[in-house]
Design a protein around this nucleic acid. Structure first.
Lengths: 230, 230
DNA sequence: GTGACTTTGTGCATCCCTTCACAAGTGCGT
DNA sequence: ACGCACTTGTGAAGGGATGCACAAAGTCAC
C-alpha cells in the first residue's frame, strides 16, 4: 500500500537521524546470535524509548510481528534499505592533516555502505604522499572522480579557512552531500546537503550543562528551590 | 530582572546547541575588525534565520540595541558567560589510537574554554609513550585528576567495545560530562551527560537523502510530482 | 479450537520549537 | 524638536516530535 511511498517520502528528519542507531544496535544483537528482539529491548539497546522506536519503525513499514517482536536480520535489512546502504557510496576525504589521516584510517567508514575512494589535498607538497595504502591526490581529480567513479559524498577535514574553498570545488564538481568537520558554516546551493561535525561545539554544550550544574549547587546553599528573590 | 534566572535556568536545549555557532561567527567578525552586527547579518553568518537568532539571544537577556544591532565583543562575552567558557574546563582524552591522537593534536580544543590536561590509555604498552608534548598516562590516574585538577569532562576515543568500560571508570572517578566518539550507546547514571559524535551516523544520514534524491529523479521520468498512483 | 498472554502499530494529547508579525525603542538627519 | 528609518524583543500562531494508552493481531499451551 502506502508503505513504499512512506518509505521514500515522509520519514521525519528526527526519525532518520535515529535509524543509524537502531541499525547499530541490531548489528550488535546479530553478532551475539540474537535473532529476535522486542521494541522494548531494542529501544534500550539504542538508548531511546520504546514508543519512539515503534513510531520510527512504523514510518518504514510494518516489519514486526505482534506478540513476538522484530526479526533482527529482517529489520536490519529494511533499515539498511531505507537508509540507502544496500549500495556502497563512494566517499572522498579532502584535507590530509591530523584529522584527515585519522578519518582515512577509521574503520567505521568501510564497515558498511561506504567506500573511501580517494584522499585529496590542496597542498601540492602533500599530493603524492602515501597515507595508509592510498596516495594523496590533487583537487583537480575531483571532476574525474564524480564522472568516472560516481563520487557522491565529500568529507571536509581541512582547517576552517580553506573549508569554503573546498566546498565550492566539491559543489562545482557535482558533489551534493558534504560532511564538514571544519568549525565553520558552509555556504552552498539549496540542493546541496551539509552536515557538520564539530567537537568544539559539543564540548561547549557539555560545558554549559556542567556550569549550570555547579551553579545550582552553589545556589542550593542559600535558596532551595524555585524563583530567586530579587 | 529575571534575565539572570533565565540565563541559568530556562534556556531551551535547541538554543544552547546553537550558541557555539553564534560565538564562532562573532569571533570571526571580531577578527575582521567588525564591531557591530545586526541579527540579520549574524544569522546569515551562523546559518540560521534571524528570528531564531533573536529568540535564542533573548533567552540570555537583552544585549542588543534597537535600530542598531549587537556589539560584537559584548555579545561574544555574554554568550561565553552563558556557556560557562569564562573558565577553562579541564579535559581528559581516553584512547590514544588514530582518533585520540588526532584529537590530542586538534587545536580547536585549546582555542578557548578548554584545556586538555591528560591523555590516557588502558593499554599498558602505550602508557608512557609521548604524544605531542604530553605523555600517555594510565587509567589509574583518573581519580587524582578529578580530585587534584578538577577534571570535569572526559572524551572517549576508544574502539566501541571498550567504550563502556572507560565510561564506567570515568563515572566512578566523578566525571559527569562525557563526549563519546565511539560508535555505541553508553549506559550511565541519570546525572551524567553524554554527547555522541559519530561520523558513521552522519554519513548514513547523508546517504538517506542522497538516495531519496536519486530515487526521485528516477521517479520523475514517469510521474512529475505529487502522489504516486497505485 | 479456544482462551490467555504478549507485543506491535497508531490515534490522541501534550509539549517544545520555529516562524510570523508587530509594537517598542533607538539613532539620524533636518 | 521632530519625524523617519531601522532593528530588537516578544506575544501568538503553526508545525513537529514525543509520550500515552489501547485496540488489533499474533503466539503458545493445552
Amino acid at each position: 500500500m502506502s508503505a513504499d511511498v512512506a518509505a521514500r517520502r515522509g520519514i521525519p528528519d528526527a526519525s532518520v537521524a535515529r535509524l543509524p542507531g537502531y541499525l547499530q544496535a541490531l548489528t550488535n544483537l546479530a553478532e551475539r546470535g540474537i535473532s529476535s528482539v522486542s521494541s522494548e529491548e531494542l529501544a534500550a539497546a539504542a538508548g531511546v524509548s520504546s514508543a519512539k522506536l515503534r513510531k520510527d519503525l512504523s514510518h518504514l513499514g510494518s516489519y514486526g510481528v505482534r506478540g513476538v517482536g522484530y526479526e533482527v536480520d529482517r529489520l536490519a535489512y529494511e533499515i539498511s534499505t531505507a537508509l540507502g546502504l544496500t549500495q556502497d557510496w563512494p566517499v572522498a576525504i579532502v584535507g590530509m592533516g591530523n584529522l584527515g589521516r585519522a578519518l582515512a584510517a577509521y574503520s567505521g567508514f568501510t564497515t558498511r555502505g561506504f567506500n573511501v575512494i580517494a584522499l585529496l589535498d590542496r597542498d601540492e607538497a602533500i599530493v603524492g604522499a602515501p597515507v595508509g595504502d592510498r596516495t594523496v591526490r590533487p583537487m583537480g581529480d575531483l571532476d574525474a572522480l564524480v564522472r568516472d567513479d560516481r563520487l557522491a559524498i565529500g568529507v571536509i577535514a581541512t582547517p576552517a579557512d580553506s573549508a569554503q574553498d573546498v566546498a565550492d570545488r566539491l559543489v562545482e564538481a557535482g558533489v551534493r552531500s558534504i560532511l564538514n568537520f571544519a568549525p565553520c558554516v558552509l555556504d552552498v546551493p539549496d540542493d546541496v546537503m551539509v552536515r557538520k561535525v564539530d567537537m568544539s561545539t559539543e564540548l561547549q554544550i557539555l560545558a554549559f550543562h556542567e556550569q549550570r550544574r555547579t551553579g545550582e549547587l552553589d545556589l542550593g546553599r542559600t535558596a532551595d528551590v524555585g524563583e530567586v528573590a530579587l
